[in-house]
Amino acid sequence: MSKIDQIQADLLEMVAGLRGAPKEGAFNIRLNGKSAGHSGSSQVSIEFKAAGSGIDVRVAPGTKGEKIYIPVVISESGMREIVYNDFYIGEGAEVEIIAGCAVHNCAQGVTQHDGVHAFRLEKGARVLYKEKHYGSGEGTGERVLNPVTECFLGEGSYMEMDTVQIKGVDSTRRLTRGKVGKNATLIVREKLMTHGSQRAETRFEVAMEGAGSGVNLISRSVARDRSSQVFFSKIEGNNACTGHSECDAIIMDEAIVRAVPEIIANHVDASLIHEAAIGKIAGEQLIKLMTLGLTRQEAEEQIIGGFLK
């Protein structure tokens, strides 16, 4: 792996839990637009697309228990990039993919990373996809992350996506799209916190095409200060299937949260539920924690911390 500085090393640990390159398995660490180190494994190949525009990751059928790290770190202010990463997960393979993107902006330029990830899961494949976003730096330049995730789930496959964005991203537009095949299941968990004057938009568009398919979207968010959040979700049931989405937001200060759920049943055996709740922290919860000796502020932190855990 090429040399990285302290800020970059810290960011890498923050979003991917890595200190330096992984000791084993496949990985690609993208640093300021270039690969700072990569490796395949006997079961997983990583190939670069032309001119640093992304990678193709192929997981051999039947692979079990591999972890694939593909974190992105940007520490150059003013850098803007779009990256296309494609994942082909072979039949019956089970892998964990750890992505994540950290942006450090210490100057005035807008720093932006738009990561477009597409996952194609063959029959019976299982993927746990973790994506953590983080921004830091004292600069006035905006830190912008606009991830697009597309999931194509083949028969009997299973994909779970955990996305977390807790701090430091000024503007984000996240789009997650899915097509879910026969007896396949897609689960998306999103945790989001916005503060200052940050803006976040989340959009889910999932179509359940196969019989026995299922989707579960769980979004928990906290909006503080003058930040704003919009949550769109559209779940379409085109076969006998079960869909559930849940958007739960805590609103504080002068923040704004908007939730626009849509569920569409195109089949008599499609069963779809949407739950949405927006509200401030319940007064009773604060009082309870204060009777345990916490100050109001400590109580708020505990409640938010637990909610986003």
């Binding site: 928990r220 739960d248 319940a282 009773e284 919860q285 009082i287 309870k288 924690l289 204060m290 009777t291 345990l292 000796g293 916490l294 100050t295 109001r296 505990q302 409640i303 911390g305 637990g306 909610f307 986003l308 855990k309």
Partner: peptide, 30 residues
């Protein structure tokens, strides 16, 4: 409330509060 708690007053509510996200262990720790 916080100051009274620190002095050594405790209170079990008639209607206990539920917390999304905090475990029993978290609450007992607090």
């Amino acid at each position: 409330i916080t100051e009274r708690a620190a002095l050594g007053i405790g209170f079990a509510f008639q209607q206990p509060v539920r917390f999304k996200g905090l475990t029993v262990r978290d609450i007992l720790t607090l």
